[in-house]
Design a protein around this nucleic acid. Structure first.
Lengths: 146, 146
DNA sequence: GATCAATCTGCAACCGTTGTCAATTGGAAA
DNA sequence: TTTCCAATTGACAACGGTTGCAGATTGATC
């Protein structure tokens, strides 16, 4: 994902206002390896800006997503996850704690059965998502108090 | 998915009661090619049993899912979809109308990048889902009034 | 048929998310 | 730098999908 400064410039170019709330959200997302929910972004930003509204966080995340600077993921973990990594890739999700990690899989060799003859039931497919599910390292080896 | 009679027997074996509501739901699901939401199952069953509660439909679908007779899918279409097909397979989803079709893809050749060395960031993976997204046939060729 | 736990219905509550709208504010223009 | 206005914000209500609850009902066993 672009740096806070680049995102600021991008917003400016689109005629959008540069508000402290937006800048704080850009900073919170920058370099994030986790795939935070809106709530998680909110909590992180609210540390330094307690007055910010969750609504504003949703708004900004949606803005970024529709600009293609962020990918909104529904991984079945309850809340949507926002992925700052816009390169094509896939995900592993922990069934227990919901942790998400990026996976770069070579998808070119997935074979569809003969019967589909290269088309998918008349669908024109524009994207493919692979989700691996299982247990993350810490959920495989729970501590004594879990 | 098993026939209504088989499901009935299965419920009986588990000590669960055979109620008309459950039987009606079994029948509604039997041989279903679509991937209905709970609401859709409810509407279909309610035709012949107007007094049935949506709550009961959810309950029975969840029961079937936890018995492994049904797969609950979250395909990002708003409501959960219930798939009577429990064979391992994948899905195409229409981005516009939410239609879902089964896909049998040979997944054995998906290659993970060298860096992962056969493991996925310490995750023990127990399942893999592929979701193809795009437009179904009728959404590619919309009629004049759509 | 009587009994009783399992089940059903209806409704309230829940969660994540979005609509609404008055109040506030960034930033272009003067 | 002040003015102005549309964009944005924050608070709160509402939404859709799903589940918890409680009291009424009903299958299964005897």
């Amino acid at each position: 994902m672009k740096s806070p400064a680049e995102l600021t410039e991008l917003f400016r170019q689109q005629g959008l206002k540069i508000t402290p709330q937006r800048v704080a959200i850009f900073q919170a997302l920058h370099g994030s390896e986790v795939h935070p929910s809106a709530e998680a972004v909110y909590e992180s930003v609210a540390v330094g800006m307690p007055s910010i509204s969750l609504r504003t966080v949703y708004q900004t995340l949606n803005d970024l997503a529709s600009m293609g600077e962020l990918v909104a993921l529904d991984l079945g973990t309850g809340a949507a996850r926002f992925d700052p990594n816009t390169d094509p890739h896939h995900h592993v999700v922990c069934d227990r704690c919901g942790k998400v990690r990026d996976i770069y899989a070579d998808f070119t060799d997935v074979r569809l059965p003969r019967s589909t003859k290269g088309e998918l039931h008349g669908f024109r497919v524009s994207s493919t998502e692979i989700v691996f599910r299982g247990l993350c390292h810490s959920c495989q080896h729970p501590g004594p108090d879990e």
